[in-house]
């Protein structure tokens, strides 16, 4: 689906960004990218999404559709002058060919299509952003710390929403996060980045069936392992 080979993108004379990353992602897989701040996680997503073209190495994306990449940022980034419905349709070329209501229902905003972003809570705004990314039916959905600005409860709701969407549409997802619990709850595989510039420090597969129990002891053991890789006691 997506193959990255020896990709590097560094700033500040090679002290920030990431270096020599190689990994591959299968179709339908949810991959988490974990790492301490400054290890180039977000830079990696910017490179994958095409926002940052100044990288070295190879990135190969299979099955290029009309909009191969969907992106969800840390902030919702809605256009404040458009209603929820118009925001979801923002990047759609043929607006009649899609059923917005279906996407409103999918993210649980059935009644809010005609509201402006100023009337939405943080969680609802992020739901709108999720619908906007999904409506292009991307081959890969990139999420850059999507829930880090939300409170704990909204965060859990949206994580469950993401699992639901994953189940219904089997979207391939790459989630950058610094929340180890989130990565363990959502991902099939976790890549751990570390150092400055960031390199691949570890890989971890999580076979437990989803939805998982947030308090699972196996997950707790994996969390300890991740903390160990990240050199955090």
């Amino acid at each position: 689906m997506l193959k990255v080979e020896n990709a590097s993108r560094t700033f500040n004379n090679g002290l920030a960004g990431f270096k020599d990353l190689s990994f591959a992602i299968q179709e339908g897989e949810t991959v988490g990218i974990l790492g301490t701040s400054g290890c180039g996680k977000s830079t990696l997503l910017r490179v994958l999404s095409g926002l940052d073209a100044g990288f070295e190495g190879d990135i190969v994306l299979a099955s290029l559709g009309e909009r191969p990449i969907g992106m969800i940022f840390q902030e919702p980034r809605l256009m404040p002058w458009l209603t929820v419905k118009e925001n979801i349709l923002f990047g759609v070329k043929d607006k009649k060919s899609v059923d917005v209501q279906e996407y409103l229902n999918l993210v649980g905003l059935s009644e809010f299509g005609n509201h402006f972003p100023k009337d939405l809570s943080g969680g609802m705004a992020q739901r709108t952003a999720i619908a906007r990314a999904l409506i292009g039916e991307p081959s890969v959905l990139l999420l850059d710390e999507p829930f880090s600005a939300l409170d704990a409860f909204t965060k859990m709701q949206l994580q469950d929403l993401l699992l639901e969407i994953q189940e219904i549409r089997s979207t391939t997802m790459i989630i950058v996060t610094h929340d180890i619990d989130e990565a363990l709850y959502l991902c099939d595989r976790i890549l751990i980045l570390g150092g400055q510039p960031g390199r691949l420090e570890g890989k971890l597969s999580i076979e437990e069936a989803k939805p998982r129990d947030r308090g699972d002891s196996n997950l707790a053991a994996k969390k300890a392992k991740i903390l160990d890789v990240l050199h955090i006691e």
Partner: peptide, 20 residues
């Protein structure tokens, strides 16, 4: 940040001006 949303959607310069 809003302009980046346009880039993700492969907007042309004209579309970026008109819609963002």
């Amino acid at each position: 940040k809003l302009i980046e949303v346009g880039k993700i959607h492969h907007f042309t310069a004209l579309q970026t001006v008109r819609r963002i």
